[in-house]
Amino acid sequence: MYRIRFHGRGGQGMKTASRILGTAFFLQGYEVQDAPRYGAERRGAPIFAYVRADETPINERGIITQADLVIVADDSLVPVPGAGVLAGVDKHTVILINSDESPEVWKQRLNISGKVFTLPVETEDRAELRFIGATCTGAAAKLLGVITRESLSQAIEEELGDLGHAVVEKNLHKALTAFDLMKKHAGCVSTMEKTSAANYTRPAWVELPFEDARISAPSIHAAANSVQVKTGLWRTQRPVIDYEHCSGCWWVCSTFCPDGAINVTEQGLPDIDYDHCKGCMVCVAQCPPHAIHAIAEEVAQAEEAKGGQA
C-alpha cells in the first residue's frame, strides 16, 4: 500500500491536491482512501491531507504515521513543530518540498538520509499559491511511477472541472510540467512491508489513576495563556511599520487589529507582535498615513536571518 501525506497551509488547496492524487490512483485501477485533516485551524495555519492506495481494499484508517511519500507544499512549515512534517520520516521516506533551496541543503539541514526532491517556488505570497497543489501532485504522480500522464490529466479535470475551463487548463499545465520534470526519478517511491504480528512493539498501556476533580476537570486555571500559541506561524505576509511615516495617530492599527496583536509602546508608537500577528493586513489597509506595508514573510525571515532589519 502507498501512503502519502500532504502538508500545507489552510487555503493552499491541500484537500484538492490529495483528491487529485486520489482520483488519479483510482483511475489507474487502485483502491483509494483520501482525506483532509481538519482541526480548529484556519487559513494560513498548518494542515495536512493524506492518500492511501492499494491493489486490495484498504482497511487502515486515520492519520498516516509513517508515510512513503511526504509532500510539503510550503517549506516554511518544515520547522513548525505543530505541522508534524517530519513525523515518522525515515530513510525509506521520499520527501518532495516546494522550495528554492536544493535537496542537498534540506538533507543536511534535516539530517535525513532518504531521497529529497524540490520544486521551485514561483510566487512570493504563499497564501496565493493557487496552483501549488496541482504542481506538487504532478511531481508526486511521477515519483510514484504508477500514474500515467492521462490519469493525472483526467483526475485534474474531474476534480477542478466545476471551477471552469481556464482553471483546469492552468492546473493541467502546472501539473504536467512538474510531472515531466521528475522523469528521471520515476518510481522512486516504494511501499513498506506489512507490520507483522509475530514481532511487534507492545503498547505501553498505563492504568489511569483516579485524580481529584480539582485536577481532572477540563478547567484552565491560567489567565490569557493563549499567548503561548504562536499564531504568527500562520502568516504568509508580514506587515511592517515605517516609523518615519507613522504619525503616532490615535493608534488605529492597534484598535482595528482583530487579534489585538498591536500594542503601543511608552513612546506612543505601535508595535506589532509578530509571534501572534496572523497576517490579515487590516493594519496595512487602514493606517491613515499609509505607514505600514506588506512584505512576504519569507523575505522578511531571510533578512532577519542575515541580521538585518526587515
Binding site: A204, W205, V206, L208, R214, I215, S219, I220, H221, N225
Partner: peptide
C-alpha cells in the same frame, strides 16, 4: 482496559501544567 499509553498520559501532564491545574 482503557487503551491509553504512558506517552499519552505524559502529554496530558504537559497540558495540565500549561492549564496550571
Amino acid at each position: 482496559r482503557l487503551l491509553y499509553t504512558e506517552s499519552e498520559l505524559r502529554e496530558v501532564r504537559k497540558l495540565q501544567a500549561v492549564a496550571k491545574v
